[in-house]
Design a protein around this nucleic acid. Structure first.
Length: 291
DNA sequence: TAACCGTGGCT
DNA sequence: TAGCCAAGGTT
């Protein structure tokens, strides 16, 4: 195994000099701000999250403020971040924090994990970044950095393995684990990127097993691409965009107008209602959820 | 476990 | 240009 200190110092020093200034990382950011940023950043780039996060923090500076709103307002102000079920879960999360934790974001990993929309990664991230807890933060960036630096592979496996978790925990420093986690993430986001890694700028290039092996390309089968055009997801997105931009119930015809294929359209609309992203009123109109 | 869940920028 | 990809979670 690679000696952890060969990685720690160079990466931490690199982070000192190259970290982006992000508002959820400042000294006055709150655990709630960190939590909201983590949910928004799930599968969504920083540049798109930034303006929405700022608006959310101004509008809902604490869980209690969001919990007082109907869930549809969370969905509306989610805008076009994508995966709007995250907005719904974040709203449910705020309500649970108010109901079960007196409005305070928990600091304990297991307690965080029990909240809606918070999985293994996000629980570790909040416990670590907001409270300084010592947890292995295994996101796609960290997994890629470790896959390359330690395992000499271009990409990590599809699903997080026990071996990856063991490695991440073995590399966790006794002190300063939170800073270490964010530093490795940042390295993956800015230098050790998925497609065109900037190895010339990498602080651990000299120790990177993948680079030393000649950067062998990913061996296994190509990862499944996510098709989008013509899918239910695209249809749901179109329908929900109509509900978001309207400031009241909309007639069925307004929804019919944005998607031609009727079978798929009805299926997608049913799905939105089942998921709690839309409501069907008695008069036949539709709107964002009020309850 | 693998499919499903949005959106848009980049190469 | 058309994939590829982005601080995942849920079922």
């Amino acid at each position: 195994m690679l000696e952890p200190k060969l990685l720690h110092l160079p990466i931490l020093e690199w982070y000192e000099n190259n970290a982006r200034e992000l508002p959820w990382r400042t000294d006055d950011s709150t655990p709630w701000g960190v939590l909201v940023s983590e949910i928004m950043l799930q599968q969504t780039p920083v540049a798109r999250v930034l303006p929405v996060w700022l608006e959310w923090m101004a509008r809902w500076p604490a869980p209690k403020a969001l919990a007082a709103e109907p869930p549809g307002e969370a969905v509306r102000h989610w805008g076009r971040l994508g995966y709007p079920r995250r907005a719904l879960r974040l709203h449910a999360c705020a309500k649970a924090i108010v109901a079960e934790h007196d409005g305070h974001v928990p600091s304990d990993h297991a307690t965080l994990l029990a909240l809606p929309g918070i999985g293994e990664y996000t629980a570790a991230a909040v416990a670590s970044f907001a409270y300084g807890g010592r947890h292995a933060v295994l996101d796609t960036n960290v997994r890629r950095v470790f896959a390359r630096a330690v395992r000499a592979e271009e990409y990590p496996p599809t699903a997080t393995s026990a071996a990856e978790r063991r490695l991440a925990e073995a590399l966790l420093p006794e002190l300063g684990a939170a800073r270490w986690g964010v530093a490795v993430m940042e390295l993956g986001a800015l230098v050790c990127t998925a497609r065109s890694p900037r190895c010339a700028d990498c602080p651990i290039a000299g120790a990177c097993a993948w680079r030393l092996a000649g950067k062998p390309p990913h061996a296994g089968p190509a990862r499944k691409g996510q098709s989008y055009a013509g899918t239910d997801r695209q249809c749901r997105g179109r329908l929900l965009a109509v509900l978001r931009s309207a400031h009241g119930p909309v007639p069925k015809a307004a929804l019919d107008a944005v998607w031609d294929e009727p079978i798929q359209r009805e299926r997608a609309l049913d799905g939105l209602i089942t998921d709690g992203l839309a409501e069907h009123l008695d008069d036949g109109t539709y709107r964002l959820p009020h309850t």
